[in-house]
Design a protein around this nucleic acid. Sequence first.
DNA 1: TTGCCGGTCAAACGTATGTTTCAAACAGAC
DNA 2: GTCTGTTTGAAACATACGTTTGACCGGCAA
Lengths: 224, 224
Amino acid sequence: MAQSDTVDRILDAAEELFADRGFSETSLRMITSKAKVNLAAVNYHFGSKNALIHAVFARFLTPFSATLENAFDDLEARCEGEPPTLNQTLWALTESAVRMPQRNEKGISIFMRLLGLAYTQSQGHLRKFLEQEYSQPFSRFMRLLKEATPQLSSVDRYWRIQFMLGATAFTMSSSDALRDILQNKLGVETTVQEIAARLVPFLAAGMQAEDAMLVPPAHKSSVA
Amino acid sequence: MAQSDTVDRILDAAEELFADRGFSETSLRMITSKAKVNLAAVNYHFGSKNALIHAVFARFLTPFSATLENAFDDLEARCEGEPPTLNQTLWALTESAVRMPQRNEKGISIFMRLLGLAYTQSQGHLRKFLEQEYSQPFSRFMRLLKEATPQLSSVDRYWRIQFMLGATAFTMSSSDALRDILQNKLGVETTVQEIAARLVPFLAAGMQAEDAMLVPPAHKSSVA
DNA sequence: TTGCCGGTCAAACGTATGTTTCAAACAGAC
DNA sequence: GTCTGTTTGAAACATACGTTTGACCGGCAA
């Protein structure tokens, strides 16, 4: 009943509300009333709303980055010196995300949505916090990407990584809404795992597209 | 000096601040002080903050959707019954965006960033407004995409369109910052047109990737 | 001149926010 | 049981927000 209960209830409520509505649009009063906790508890246990946001991210990002490091270790061990392929690298990332122990069935999509928001919403303090705390697995991922696409120029690779990040962050940040639309329009249920499974081939194909052409194609030209 | 000046100054300031910081994080007082205009002017000329947001979008979205319809008309006319290819359709869109008359050099990236925010930030009123006002060119683009990718299932196509939107909105929305990073890291200058020229092949390749596999690949499997 | 009206201005309104305060309740050690 | 440090509770605080008000200005028609 002591600290851990209140702290966890606050984190649970905050996580869900942040994912639903964003950070600025979620007030401490919404959080504390959803958590059935006194308003002052947030500032008592966390110090400030920003610190609460950091705590929400740390709670899933710290174990996730550990899982991810292990996945990368395994991958590199299996490859015995050969650099892992692009597909392998992307799958190591998505599998680590999907296989994370989840607090409830919405765990993964909340997780993804929060990451998308972190990129999208211009919360300077959040970006600083994430860069300070989790730069290592991020850099390692970037290195693996580089080794998996030696045919790309640095500039091409740079931009294509941005495109991948964008497709991922954007899709995940609105994945609930997108799933709803899909269900209403086509009557199809979708899990986050399936979205990820659709996303990875898209990213891999885009990443390995023919060299970017710097002029529009002639009329009536075909693709491929 | 009369109405138009104040109205435009408010729109200019709001557009830039919204693109920089998001909607909820931008107060009317920030806007009016940047625009050097009295606080009450916003409510006088627009009625409310939400209506101002709508006006900001309408100012560039209305001419853009007209330009886009023309580009699609031209494209379909040139194709004489044959459905335009995916590459042609994507180029028609990007060219329309890039060729729009811009108020300043940041015009395009602000434009893109706002579109990304509209999708990402959970502003129900905005989504409703955009759907009501601009459903026609959007539906037409969707139809062209569908005809250009008959091999895809509806569900695959739906998700891949989301991935394209994400890569585009995300990249363009932060293209200023990304360009700066690129210049510092690699010493390369980049224009929005060049980014678009890199983006289109990435999108086309991703859109036409092999069917999504719903399980991770076996170890050490290659891509392509 | 007079009257009017679209536009601007400083000031205030009511509300919601994050944060702080301080007394009460609690737990565990002695 | 008493003491001590920690956690909760209701209330208040200061601030920022979107919006409204009513006085004021300037041009223009009558």
